[in-house]
Amino acid sequence: MEDLITHFFNFVGHVVCHQIPERTLWIGGRYLPVCSRDTGAYLGLCIGYLLLPLRKKDAHGPPNLWITFFMVVPMIVDAATQTLGVRTSTNELRLITGLIFGVALAPFLVYLVSLVPLSRKLPIVQGFLPKSVRLDDKEPWLNSQSLGLGLLMAVALFFAINSVVGSTSPIFYWLLSPLIVCSVVWHIFLLPLFLALSLFAYLRTLSCSSSSS
């Protein structure tokens, strides 16, 4: 049964990741379903969702965009420079940059998802969305302190994961892998549909307003 679940995890991971063994973390006698950078990104997204209770319920502006930008950039620079052959990254660097990327991206994605008309009807999700979306609003829906807390949580998780890499205790594998797979399924299978719907709806309102004027 364990092998069957592990095969399923690896199958889902294979859809989104190269799974190169040298770049994948070995925990609990198995490789994680995705590489270290993706592990960081998908777990970081989960941490990012934990920041949502700190949101300002009456604010309508996007999460602090400058901080989001500076948290997203390191992973992109790390991945881009490696892809271009300028340098070779390490698993530690891939993991930490991925975690920070995910933490910053999650509130931004939630903010974008709130544009989807369907999201207002979902029972649990609607409670976490901003009441209305105003991209020009200066008051951020999630402030810089909350993103800073997310950064600290990402660093703490990095040290926690780094300390169990190479361990033979399977409990760490079973703690991390289901979370990663759930995150992959949500962000790769379900969220694109939400975002596509949101942009369609927004463009439709734009074309309606331009034709009426």
């Binding site: 859809v15 790769i188 299978f189 694109p192 549909l193 596509a196 942009l199 463009l203 734009l206």
Partner: peptide, 20 residues
């Protein structure tokens, strides 16, 4: 089939985003 649809959906999102 759903897996094959992922790149298509992402492509549509990217195009719509660029238009916006």
């Amino acid at each position: 089939g759903l897996v094959c649809l992922i790149p298509v959906v992402w492509f549509i999102i990217a195009v719509l985003l660029c238009i916006w």
